[in-house]
């Protein structure tokens, strides 16, 4: 359905925006390394079915490979700044102070409590869904702490938020047309979209109404 396709495209766009801007400006100002590392972990734990015989479609396969490869590539790209631009890298590390072990532990507990089957793959899948729902927090924390939003991070988070938002409509669509619902994905998806809702309001004020303001 259209919601899902545009959701996926918006997710692709967010990664494209991030990669393009980092590569072309050679700047990592305002980007949270922790959030990017968490996303790499999210895809590594979710797409393990690539190595099983679970085949969905060519589209699904190619997207999984792309998300997996691009998330790892972003982490590597950011790590290169450690030697390429130590000052910028150090500044990022100093601002990137969110305690992610709470997110990891919370997602692990949620994965152990809520899963479809008690198998390693299913628990890791569930862990990845819960982790994705909170993985943006270090980035949002960094934005609110620095009080200024780089256009890169603003557009990046907007595209990511749009992807989650469209997925909610995708689930409503699937519930109506296919009578299919994945409770774990839906609950975690709503949590994730709620995380972005405050950001959406800021984006609306800043970008759409053109107020060059600061983040509260």
């Amino acid at each position: 359905n259209l919601f899902r396709i545009f959701g996926d495209l918006s997710h692709l766009a967010s990664i494209g925006i991030l990669l393009h801007t980092v590569r072309s400006t050679q700047s990592i100002d305002g980007i949270s390394f922790k959030t990017q590392a968490l996303y790499a972990l999210v895809f590594m734990t979710r797409y393990l079915d690539l190595f099983t015989w679970h085949w969905v479609s060519l589209y699904n396969f190619l997207m999984k490979v792309f998300f997996l490869a691009s998330s790892v590539y972003i982490v590597v790209l950011l790590q290169q700044f450690r030697t390429k631009n130590p000052i910028a890298y150090k500044e990022m590390v100093l601002q990137d102070t969110f305690k992610i072990h709470f997110l990891l532990l919370g997602s692990l507990v949620a994965g152990l409590c809520f899963h479809h089957r008690f198998t390693l793959l299913e628990i890791l899948w569930s862990f990845s869904v819960w982790l994705e729902s909170v993985a943006i927090l270090p980035q949002l924390f960094m934005l609110s702490k620095s009080g200024r939003a780089q256009s890169l991070t603003v557009h990046y988070i907007f595209a990511l938020g749009l992807y989650r938002f469209l997925y909610i409509f995708n689930w409503i669509w699937r519930y109506v047309s296919e009578a299919r619902v994945d409770k774990i994905a839906v609950v975690a998806g709503i949590v994730q979209t709620a995380m972005y809702s405050d950001f959406f309001y800021i984006y609306y004020k800043k970008v759409i109404r053109g107020n060059a303001g600061n983040l509260p």
């Binding site: 299913e122 619902v181 409770k183 994905a185």
Partner: peptide
């Protein structure tokens, strides 16, 4: 009504 892992989404 189908509930459970299809895992056909990204």
């Amino acid at each position: 009504f189908v509930y459970g892992p299809g895992h056909d989404e990204l």
